[in-house]
């Protein structure tokens, strides 16, 4: 379970969020541009520090202002897909997807065999040796998703992951996500601009406005 209670003064308003996402569950987080969606994800990932509050995941405290706990991003094991995909342009698709395993010191052959199932699922097998800079927008998003899933994250953060995706691959992504999130039993926060276009079960919606969760259908 992901348990968040954070606040931080932003330029125009105070971001103040209390949010709980159970394992195996999707929280679809909607809101306008500049409402604080990406800032919230960055806080959970450890890229921005909250001023007050705590972030806990499955009994691990990532951040606690009171106890002065702040685990660096590389130790949180969070699968984070950025809005712009941010695939590393100088690396191949395979090198992108196995980057997290390489950072953990895993050897090349082990890395590659580790992700074959994943790359096949995402339909990237024929692109493994392509330089990521040459991919289309949708392919980049798939690579970014695969790269985040390859580290077997304890939590998934997806910032508009399907914006650049061809509609025909939405079901592939939804299936892949569904299976991983269910089998690993992890919480997932999915940020969206409009309504979610992915067909996911076990999800609930909430809306963030000027840094506050406004409307939520959480049970």
């Amino acid at each position: 379970m992901l348990d968040i209670s954070v606040s931080r003064q932003l330029r125009d308003f105070e971001l103040s969020v209390d949010l709980t996402v159970k394992t195996g569950e999707y929280c679809i987080l909607a809101g306008n541009n500049g409402a604080g969606k990406s800032t919230l994800l960055n806080m959970i990932a450890g890229l921005i520090d909250p001023e007050k509050g705590y972030i806990r995941s499955n009994g691990t405290t990532f951040f606690d202002a009171g106890d002065r706990i702040n685990i660096p991003p590389e130790e949180r094991q969070i699968g984070y897909v950025f809005q712009n995909a941010a695939v590393f342009p100088h690396l191949t698709v395979a090198e992108n997807i196995t980057y997290g395993l390489r950072a953990r010191g895993m050897g090349k052959s082990l890395r590659d065999s580790n992700v074959t199932g994943l790359t096949k699922r995402l339909g990237l097998n024929h692109l493994l040796d392509c330089k990521a800079a040459q991919l289309s927008g949708g392919q980049k998003q798939l690579v970014a998703l695969g790269r985040a899933l390859a580290i077997e994250p304890v939590l998934l953060l997806l910032d508009e992951p399907y914006r650049a995706l061809d509609r025909t691959i939405h079901p592939i992504v939804a299936d892949c996500l569904q299976e991983m999130v269910t089998s690993w039993d992890i919480p997932c926060i999915l940020v969206t601009h409009q309504n979610s276009e992915l067909d996911l079960t076990n999800c609930w919606n909430c809306r963030i406005h000027d840094g506050k969760i406004e409307k939520s259908d959480a049970r």
Partner: peptide, 8 residues
């Protein structure tokens, strides 16, 4: 930021 979150 992505690289950090991936464990680097």
């Amino acid at each position: 930021q992505t690289a950090r979150s991936l464990g680097a």
